[in-house]
């Protein structure tokens, strides 16, 4: 039994082996992009919105609303980043019910890549909003003594993000695989349904935590929201 889809090679492209993680990631990317292009290709302001366009607007505005609740200032770049995180994770997790599909989020490489992206995005957003000096000053808050702890906390956030998402998704898939061997007709269905719920929640938590981290770096210390959400 392969625990990680990284080890499964789907095909080779120009001599480069493409594993299941990357292959299924492309499928998710193609699905998201294709659906977006299909629904927004004839989008005009003078035409009343269709049912699908309204669905997309609800999703996008829902993400924007969640970001607005956490972030002090409205920043569309944050929407692009965390919204894409959420949509990618939730689509990958929901496609878990498709027979033969192995969600990329069940790969530690994927979750580590997403965590690294968040880890890099935090200083980028922070420097972009506060400048280099303003961002570096947050590392010595409330005093210089806290500098090593802030550095450790910064990296531990990325690690915890990666491990949390990977553990939840991978464990769901592993448990489903084990139960398939024990009781092949009943438990897998229940576990898949539970996996759908868990995948949705994990996507939400990952995106919210990323938003919180980036917002805390972009806002002055006095404006950092006190809401801390943790799903561990």
């Amino acid at each position: 039994m392969q625990l990680s889809p990284d080890q499964a090679i789907l095909f080779t492209l120009g001599g480069i082996p493409i594993n299941a993680t990357i292959g299924y990631t492309w499928i998710v990317m193609a699905l998201l992009t294709g659906t977006s292009m299909l629904l927004t290709r004839s989008l005009r302001p003078d035409v009343p919105p269709s049912r699908w366009r309204t669905t997309l607007e609800v999703i996008v505005q829902g993400i924007q609303g969640q970001i607005d609740e956490i972030s002090v200032r409205r920043d569309r770049r944050l929407l692009y980043f965390t919204g894409t995180l959420f949509l990618f994770i939730v689509t990958s997790n929901l496609l878990m019910v498709v027979p033969g599909f192995r969600p990329p989020t069940a790969s530690l490489s994927t979750t580590a890549a997403l965590a690294l992206s968040v880890l890099v995005a935090v200083p980028i957003f922070g420097i972009g909003n506060q400048g280099l000096g303003g961002y570096l000053r947050t590392w010595i808050q409330p005093s210089v003594i806290m500098l090593p702890f802030n550095i450790i906390g910064e990296f531990s956030r990325g690690i915890s993000l990666a491990i949390r998402l990977y553990g939840n998704i991978m464990s769901g898939a592993v448990i489903a695989g084990i139960l398939l061997g024990v009781a092949p007709f009943f438990f897998p269905v229940v576990m898949d349904m539970l996996g759908l719920l868990t995948g949705l929640i994990q996507a939400y938590i990952f995106a919210i935590l990323a938003t919180v981290y980036i917002s805390s770096a972009t806002a002055p210390p006095s404006d950092i929201p006190q809401t801390k959400k943790d799903a561990s």
């Binding site: 993680t21 990317m29 890549a113």
Partner: peptide
């Protein structure tokens, strides 16, 4: 794979944007 996934994610960000 991590590097490829980072690249994939950034491409996806751009595509969805």
């Amino acid at each position: 794979t991590v590097a490829a996934q980072i690249l994939n994610f950034l491409v996806l960000v751009w595509l969805l944007k």
